Simulated scan of single mutants.
Amino acid sequence: MHPYKLILLTLFLSFAFLATSKASANCEQSCSLKSVTEQVREHALLNQFKQTKRIAILSKPLVSTGYLLVSDELGVVWQTSLPLKGTIVIENDSLKQFNKHDQAVSAPANTNQQASQLITSTFLAILAGDFEQLERNFSAELICDETQWQIQLQAKHDDMRRLLTDITIIGNTNIQQLIFSEANGDTTELVFIPFEDPAIEEALGLYFVR
């Protein structure tokens, strides 16, 4: 597998956030990217996630679970707990990876930096609710009904289309689900549930200073 594909797969196995919430009766009235952005930015600090990765050549999906810590000031810690522990720390200008023993793991020397940076910036923009940045690389269509909103992002440029064709973001007052469609036909679905556990939150926060 090409090194940048390894980074891409790791990122797909290692991103996103947020929570379920009460349905809004006024969803239709607030159906705009601006209002959705404001909702998304009021996100939960700690979330559990379930990820389902469907690979075209495999008959069964790959399922993983874990925790996501989101800090507006520091960045994101995404830790897979099952089937195998692994941790990724994403900050504005860096990405750190740790194995199941919490040992730092370096990306291959010949990794496609442009591709990995493009993927990283896209996911950080989703986490931040920065749809203005997303619209540089994607066209956005927003659909609302009485219970939720959905944003469909279609890749505009060849550099992005070689990696991702589209992203679906589904939520209410926060993001509940993300679906990524890759150019090779693979898809990744992420579902998020808010979670409160001070011990887990503290342990994940320590990765920011490693």
Score class of each variant (00 low, 15 high):
residue 37 T to H: 01
residue 38 E to P: 12
residue 38 E to W: 14
residue 39 Q to L: 08
residue 41 R to W: 01
residue 42 E to A: 15
residue 42 E to V: 11
residue 46 L to V: 00
residue 46 L to D: 10
residue 48 Q to S: 03
residue 48 Q to D: 03
residue 48 Q to W: 06
residue 48 Q to Y: 01
residue 48 Q to M: 01
residue 49 F to R: 00
residue 49 F to I: 08
residue 50 K to D: 08
residue 50 K to N: 12
residue 51 Q to W: 00
residue 51 Q to V: 02
residue 51 Q to T: 10
residue 52 T to K: 13
residue 53 K to M: 05
residue 53 K to N: 07
residue 54 R to H: 10
residue 54 R to I: 11
residue 55 I to N: 14
residue 55 I to H: 05
residue 56 A to V: 15
residue 57 I to T: 13
residue 58 L to G: 09
residue 58 L to C: 06
residue 58 L to P: 10
residue 58 L to T: 08
residue 59 S to F: 14
residue 60 K to V: 08
residue 60 K to I: 11
residue 60 K to A: 12
residue 62 L to M: 15
residue 63 V to F: 02
residue 64 S to Q: 13
residue 64 S to K: 03
residue 65 T to M: 10
residue 65 T to S: 10
residue 66 G to R: 06
residue 69 L to R: 01
residue 69 L to P: 03
residue 70 V to I: 08
residue 70 V to W: 04
residue 71 S to G: 07
residue 71 S to M: 05
residue 72 D to M: 02
residue 73 E to S: 13
residue 74 L to V: 06
residue 74 L to N: 12
residue 74 L to K: 15
residue 75 G to E: 09
residue 76 V to Y: 04
residue 76 V to Q: 09
residue 77 V to Q: 07
residue 77 V to N: 02
residue 78 W to N: 06
residue 78 W to S: 11
residue 78 W to G: 05
residue 78 W to P: 00
residue 79 Q to L: 06
residue 79 Q to R: 15
residue 79 Q to S: 08
residue 79 Q to T: 09
residue 79 Q to E: 11
residue 80 T to W: 02
residue 80 T to K: 08
residue 81 S to D: 15
residue 81 S to M: 13
residue 81 S to V: 15
residue 81 S to L: 13
residue 82 L to S: 11
residue 82 L to A: 15
residue 82 L to Y: 01
residue 83 P to K: 13
residue 83 P to T: 07
residue 85 K to Q: 08
residue 85 K to I: 00
residue 85 K to C: 01
residue 86 G to E: 09
residue 86 G to N: 12
residue 86 G to L: 04
residue 87 T to N: 08
residue 87 T to F: 07
residue 88 I to G: 14
residue 89 V to M: 02
residue 90 I to G: 04
residue 90 I to W: 06
